[in-house]
Each structure stands twice: as C-alpha cells, then as structure tokens.
Amino acid sequence: MNKLLATSALALSTLVSSPAALAEQQAQSSYRPSPFSLSATRMTTGTADVGTNELQRDQWMFDFKASMPLGKKWFIGAGVGYDNLDYDWRSASLVGNTQTWDKIERYRASLSLSYRPNKNWMFMLAPKLQYAYADTASASNAESYGTVLSGMYRFDSGNVLGLGVAYLNDIDEVRTIPFIAVNWQITENLKLGNPFSAGFSGPAGLELSYQLDPNWQLGAGTSKRTNRFLIADDKETAEIDEWVSFIRLGWDISKAVSVNAYAGYFFNGELELNPQNSKQDIDNQGAAALDVTFKF
C-alpha cells in the first residue's frame, strides 16, 4: 500500500513520497508543495500460524516530514517517525527456551538532498537512521543506519523513470537493495507508481492506480517487506520477511487532508531468529489499514 504494510507488517504509509513522484513534483515550476506533513496509520492482520505458535499483529505508525527548496536546483527534506507494534503470541516460546516478544518500538529519522541539473534529470541522496527493538531488549543496541541513492529521468511527457539502491547497515546485517523508481501516466486516469519509499522495510514496490474522479483513487500493488528488530541484547534479532499484495481506496478530502484505506494479503512469509539461525514459515494472512495525512 502506498502506505500500507511498511514493516514486518503492512507497508502502509502514505507517509513518504517515492523518489519518482518527488522528481515529477519538483519538475513542475508551478508546483508548490506543502512544506510540512503529518501522517498516522493503523494496521491490523489476521492470525497466522508460525510453527506451533499463532501470531496476530497490530501497528501504529506516525510520521512528520518537512521539505523546502534551496534555490532552483537543490531541495532538502527531513523526516522523523515512530512505530508501535503489538505482537500477540498464542504461545509461551518460539524456539527452545526463547521467550516471545510482544511489544516492539521503532524510531526513524531521515534526511534527503536532491539535485536537478536540468529539467530532465534528478539525483537524490537520503541517509537514514533507525532504532527497532522489542520490550525484551534495550534501545542502545538496536541502531541501524544506511543511505538511499537514486537517479531519475523525467521525459517530456512528464513520466518519470529511474533506478536506485539502498545500502543498509541493519542490526547485525548489511543489505543492499536495488529498486526501480517510476511515476508513469499510462492514460489520463491510469498510473503506475511506487507505493513505498525504499529503505529498511524493503524496495519501493509497484502500484497501479486509477483516478475515479478528482477526489477518489483506486489502486492495487505488491512488494516484498522486511522487518528486523532486536529481541535481546548481544545482537539477538528477529526478522520477518514476506510479500504483500493490497488494494487501496484513496480519498482527497481537501488539498490538506487525505485518507487511504487498504485491504492487504501477506504471503510467503518467514520468521528468522538469529544467532540461532532458526527459520519458521508464517502462514498467509489478511490485513487491513487506514492512513490519514495532513499537509500544512
């Protein structure tokens, strides 16, 4: 979901603009985006079997973003976020004597610097910092950091296509994630774009959306999602890796307020515990989410 399900769970977040959408906006000299935005997202999943356990997940996500131009060619942005994940386990242990973790907190911060040398090209650098840890671990050992690099080309038609790579030094693991940045107006009402911002949760994904009228959109998309967090000190981690498909219904109430509702489906999920190197499949499950964004 352009904003759905953005963690071990939904990438639900209308919180972050994709690089391609940002390139299209910055290329329009008459475009004057709101400098600040505040988003709140609520997500819930069905119950899924994980080995001999059952798991049901709920999540709150909050994001605050700010952006501004630095002259005609440079743009700068910043964002902070807080996520609260509730993992409801129906068992006392996962592997051997490993105690389950129920509450997970995640704090996020990012900067972005983009450069437009001419009307067609845009390049962006976005360093990121994250702390993700369960109630059985301490925040001081849960640091992750990385950066996202992307280059995009805006055609004379206004369509945007580009490539990017995210280098992420996650908790006790280094990952490199390539992704495609796209904002392509196929017809007057049909558009292909990225529902997510590439980062610790995975690549940007793809969404096909249809503009029903000036205020309503209907979209469908998919992406791979990853959520890694500290569950005990000494770098004991849990990672949930899964695919998500979703349908989104968006409503632009006004220029300042938008609402997106999602129905999603997680599949091919896997839970990995380290350093035990223990892996367990996660059953497919349905999910739902609601995102509200204010721009001011």
Rank of each mutant, 00 (worst) to 15 (best):
N2Q: 14
A6P: 11
S8A: 11
A11P: 11
A11K: 11
S17V: 08
S18Y: 03
L22N: 12
E24S: 15
E24I: 04
R32T: 13
P35V: 00
P35D: 00
S37Q: 11
L38E: 00
A40S: 05
A40V: 04
M43Y: 07
T52W: 07
N53P: 06
N53S: 15
L55Q: 13
Q59M: 02
W60C: 00
S67T: 05
P69L: 06
L70E: 06
L70Q: 08
G71L: 07
G77I: 00
G77C: 06
D86A: 12
R90A: 12
S91M: 02
S93G: 13
S93R: 15
V95A: 15
G96C: 08
T100R: 10
I104E: 04
R108T: 02
L111H: 02
S114Q: 05
Y115V: 00
M122K: 08
M122G: 05
P127T: 01
L129A: 09
Y133F: 15
D135H: 09
S138A: 09
S138D: 12
A139Q: 14
Y145F: 12
S150F: 02
D156A: 06
S157D: 08
V160M: 02
Y167I: 05
Y167F: 13
Y167E: 02
D170G: 10
E173R: 15
T176V: 11
F179N: 03
F179S: 07
V182W: 09
L190E: 03
P195V: 01
A198Y: 00
A198M: 01
P203I: 02
S209H: 06
Q211E: 06
Q211V: 03
S223Y: 10
S223N: 12
R225T: 10
T226D: 01
F229G: 09
F229R: 07
I231A: 05
A232Y: 14
K235C: 08
K235R: 09
E239P: 13
E242W: 06
E242F: 08
W243V: 01
S245L: 04
W251A: 03
S254E: 07
V257N: 14
A261N: 06
Y265D: 03
Y265K: 12
Y265Q: 10
G269L: 03
G269D: 03
E272P: 06
Q276G: 14
I282Q: 13
L290S: 04
L290M: 04
V292D: 05
K295A: 10
